[in-house]
Amino acid sequence: MDPMPHASPEETPPRPPDPAARDAHGGEVVIRVRDLVTHYGDRQILKNVSLDVHAGEILVIMGGSGSGKSTLLNHLLGLLRPTSGVIEVLGKDINTSKESELTEIRRKFGVAFQGGALFSSMNLLENIMLPLYEHTDLDRRTMEIMARMKMEVVSLSGFDDLMPAELSGGMIKRAALARAIVMDPRILFCDEPSAGLDPVVAANIDDLILDLRDATGMSVVVVTHELESAFKIADRICVLDKGKVLTIAPVDEVRANPDQRIQNLLNRRTEEEELDPEAYLRRLTGEKEP
């Protein structure tokens, strides 16, 4: 798999839309995935995944460990190439676009990585300004004001000079969000935005994501295994299981879905795997398969 780095988006109402597709109901589709298949070696990770993300919606991707949700996110970010299938972001097929087209798309993404992905040698302000340095020729003063506006939005005002090592877990998550939105992205991707945080701080992050979407109209794709957070912020939830989409539906429909695998996920029950006693014994004793 050859890595294909990507990055950052934006939107406020009467902006002319990019020539993205429209769904059957006429709503703008900002991300369109069709029949996505991917492998790690011989192992198939994603199995014909198809989904749409609409303008202004919050889509939460959920699934247990190994369900393929992180792999799907990496594909949406253009970090992995699929075995087959199509991924269109803002109307462009990111697997066949030229580098110059990809750069344009990257300017319209924002990504809040799970661990923050802050540079340890830069202070908070410099970390948040980084996408502006990479993608614009703005005056430094303008960049600083833009970064500080976003720091105010995520309640990090006044912490310009703090280094990443001096930040709490919640501050790192908020800093990652600030950097992700500094270019006014049209699409914000959040990887486990509230994982590992105490309930109050996690709820604050959820509120922040909702406020950002409401104020800017951006689309948000969140990968999480935090049920409470998903139910609070999602317009629709995509449930993945073993690389397949089980459902993509509004929160209430997902909750009411009778599929046992979905109910297991929602009720935090692990599915009992079928046990082959012979194979299990071989694994325990380190014997090769006959």
Binding site: T12, R141, M146, M149, D184
Partner: peptide, 14 residues
């Protein structure tokens, strides 16, 4: 003005 982004608002701040 049909649209103003953060860079435009930053210019107003300055």
């Amino acid at each position: 003005v049909s649209y103003i982004d953060s860079s435009g608002i930053a210019s107003l701040v300055e």
